[in-house]
Design a protein around this nucleic acid. Structure first.
Lengths: 145, 145
DNA sequence: GAAATAAATGATAATGATTATCATTTAAAT
DNA sequence: ATTTAAATGATAATCATTATCATTTATTTC
């Protein structure tokens, strides 16, 4: 994965460039997302921060996650079941594999991922902006139970 | 697309097999989904039925759409923005192209759609059950404005 | 470093899509 | 025609997210 400190620095730079203030609450959200592996949701980010920052408000987590998303620094993963998870490491479209049971989300390597986007654009006349490719199933841990 | 009458017959058969009653309300929902091209949402199904069936309840549309989904006769498309649309013609995973502006959803032909599922299963150890492949952009109509 | 100010925060209310509840109605079996 | 389990209509409850607003604070300016 991307080096967390590098990610943190680059996000802080983006925040300053867009003249946003660097509050302790904001920095806490940035740090968690830059270090995250498991694609956390807002509630998980909130709980993690609250343990050493008890005055943190859930609304503030929502606001900062929204801001980082609008700056293009994190990727929002809205899933078919309505849940939202966030990827602070690779803020660009990439495939995901989701366990239907334990809800873990992983980033697979996919060699055969051709440039389907250009084929779609040619066939439909759309100007394609982004895409989603998600596989749903059961992980090995959940199958062994 | 699949022949609507064929779809209606096959859905009715499924309903009878699973001993569900065939009410006028239920049949209206089935007919609209079997004839639909544009991947309607629940509200659109409801509005369309209400015009010649004014006592129709929104809750009944939700219930029947849910039932048809659980019988595997329609495909629910939950999108990242939280919206839900339904495909009554091809109730199996297939790619979609979505216009971000006018929200139209079309089913493209995609030659290069390899069997990525087996590659993912091999790499991750997951037992893959389903997948989603969606492209988001602007359709030609919306670009010409 | 103190004052000024626009932005951020915390607490909570509002929203909107979906689901649950429950009394009444109805499809289909007997 | 009678019976009964299922379906319906109306509406309340839910839950994640967004909006509101008074208060606090990071950063700029002197």
């Amino acid at each position: 994965m991307a080096d967390p400190n590098q990610r943190i620095d680059s996000i802080i730079k983006k925040l300053k460039e867009s003249s946003h203030k660097l509050t302790p609450q904001r920095l806490a959200v940035v740090k968690i997302l830059a270090h995250s592996q498991g694609h956390p949701n807002v509630e998980q980010i909130y709980e993690q921060i609250k343990s050493d920052f008890p005055t943190m408000s859930l609304a503030t987590v929502y606001r900062n996650v929204m801001l980082l998303k609008s700056l293009g620094e994190i990727l929002e993963l809205g899933f078919p079941d309505g849940s939202n998870r966030y990827d602070g490491n690779k803020p660009y479209p990439h495939p995901h594999v989701i366990c239907i049971k334990c809800k873990k989300v992983i980033d697979p390597d996919l060699d055969s991922l051709k440039d389907m986007t250009s084929e779609i654009a040619a066939e439909t006349g759309f100007k394609i902006v982004t895409h989603r490719l998600d596989f749903f199933g059961f992980c090995q841990d959940c199958m062994n139970q």
